[in-house]
Simulated assay, not measured.
Amino acid sequence: MMQGLIKTRTELPEMLVLEILSKLPVKSLTRFRCVCKPWSSSFETPHFITKHHHNNIKNNYLNLLLKRCHGGTRDDIHYFSQLSTEKDQNFRVNHNIHLPFFENFVHGPFIHGPCNGILCLADLGGLGHNVALWNPSTREFKIIPQTTVQRPPGLLDFSTFNSLGFGYDSQTDDFKIVRSVTNYFEENLDEGLMEDWNSQVELYSLKSDSWKEISFTGFYAFASILFNNYVNGFIYCQAVGVDHHILSFDMVNEKFSTSPLPEFGWSLEQYYLELLDFNGLLGAIFYPREGTDKSFDLWVMNGSWTKQFSAESVLGVERPLGFWKNGELFLESSDQELVLFDPSVKELRNLGIHAYKSTMQITAYVESLVPLNGRSEYEECIIRRPVGG
């Protein structure tokens, strides 16, 4: 006669266990590294990292990061706010994050990306020498080494970094940064001194952890700083030459090419243009330079340019900041408040988050386990403060 129940343990197949784990947030996976060494090792494999990232994209698990400044000028200390994405919390601030590496630079860092969950931060308000990669999910931070690209002889004491793009090379599994550099010279003429300049383009590879010069002729370009302008292996920016074009950079072939802008019917002297990733396609959003009664036209490239939507007479707003789920658009109001506009019902919702004018930049990203070979936020003295804590 049985004295008690016999307990049995069912072992799940390893592949099924990893499939389940790949659907968990990074915070949970960080804790589960302590469960057993095979799990910890599996979380570092390219297959698991890719599977985990694709699951987050598939389920549209987005996180929100807002860069802002609370001071009385643009030059006060900039910091990041992690916003809640829970439906009932109205995007309230969960954490404020301070990055000491950028605190002594004018305007703080601009965000480029995200790309596979990685953000590229760059000081383009000053001389632009300082660049870092940041994975806010794993809380890893990597300071990019200074360039070793040789400058032409006769250079003045400084060069400026005018634009920057950040993207992913799927062929070599490498993250790359491309930026343009303007070099300034003095020329001796009979009547005195004259300043002259030329441009170089340089590229950083995370795999080699180094910079190199690449060829670039014919255009002067500046990149978007409001939106993520990396789309499906290409970086896009506006090229200014004889005509207005889009300049694209192929992350695999490391080559530039141009394509036309949409014929949106207005002059770029009257309208701002921002290029962005819109649901995996290249998008272009146009909005007026003047007034607080704005219109927003979104065009999308899918073989050819087509107008996605047009929102007219949105009152009391200054500029777009980024798209949210279901095509909703974050905007900066004329009162320097973060607001959310739903084009389908033409509804504007105040979110109660303020910043000094034109310092807000919002980034929506999915979590990622991609390693940077950098250091932890703690080692870089990055401070996260829970709101109310």
Score class of each variant (00 low, 15 high):
182 T>F: 14
184 Y>L: 09
187 E>M: 08
190 D>I: 00
192 G>Q: 10
193 L>D: 05
193 L>Q: 13
195 E>T: 11
195 E>N: 15
198 N>R: 14
199 S>L: 13
199 S>C: 09
201 V>L: 01
202 E>G: 05
202 E>C: 02
203 L>I: 15
203 L>P: 09
204 Y>E: 05
206 L>V: 12
208 S>Q: 07
209 D>T: 07
211 W>K: 03
213 E>D: 11
213 E>Y: 11
216 F>A: 05
216 F>K: 10
217 T>L: 00
219 F>Y: 15
219 F>D: 05
220 Y>E: 14
223 A>N: 12
225 I>N: 05
225 I>P: 06
226 L>H: 15
227 F>C: 03
227 F>L: 02
228 N>C: 09
230 Y>I: 15
230 Y>W: 10
230 Y>G: 07
231 V>W: 14
231 V>T: 14
232 N>R: 11
232 N>K: 09
233 G>E: 08
234 F>K: 06
234 F>Q: 13
235 I>K: 15
236 Y>H: 09
236 Y>E: 00
237 C>P: 02
238 Q>L: 15
239 A>Q: 05
239 A>E: 00
241 G>K: 10
241 G>V: 00
242 V>Y: 07
243 D>C: 08
243 D>V: 10
244 H>K: 14
244 H>L: 13
245 H>T: 15
246 I>P: 01
246 I>V: 04
247 L>M: 08
248 S>I: 04
248 S>T: 14
250 D>L: 02
251 M>T: 15
252 V>M: 04
256 F>C: 08
262 P>S: 02
264 F>C: 08
264 F>K: 01
265 G>T: 03
265 G>C: 04
266 W>P: 06
267 S>W: 07
268 L>W: 05
268 L>T: 07
269 E>W: 09
269 E>I: 01
269 E>A: 08
269 E>M: 00
270 Q>Y: 12
270 Q>I: 06
271 Y>E: 01
271 Y>S: 10
272 Y>C: 13
273 L>R: 03
274 E>V: 02
275 L>H: 11
276 L>N: 10
277 D>V: 03
281 L>R: 05
284 A>F: 02
285 I>Q: 09
288 P>I: 05
289 R>S: 03
289 R>Y: 07
290 E>H: 09
291 G>S: 06
291 G>L: 09
292 T>S: 11
294 K>S: 04
294 K>Q: 07
296 F>T: 01
297 D>I: 08
297 D>Y: 10
298 L>N: 03
298 L>I: 05
299 W>I: 14
299 W>K: 12
299 W>Y: 03
300 V>D: 05
300 V>M: 01
301 M>Y: 14
302 N>A: 10
303 G>P: 08
305 W>R: 12
306 T>F: 11
306 T>H: 10
307 K>Q: 11
307 K>C: 11
308 Q>S: 09
308 Q>E: 13
310 S>C: 11
311 A>L: 02
311 A>C: 01
313 S>H: 03
314 V>N: 08
315 L>I: 12
315 L>M: 06
315 L>N: 10
317 V>M: 02
317 V>R: 01
317 V>G: 02
318 E>Y: 15
319 R>W: 12
320 P>A: 00
322 G>M: 00
322 G>F: 05
322 G>Q: 03
324 W>A: 01
325 K>P: 00
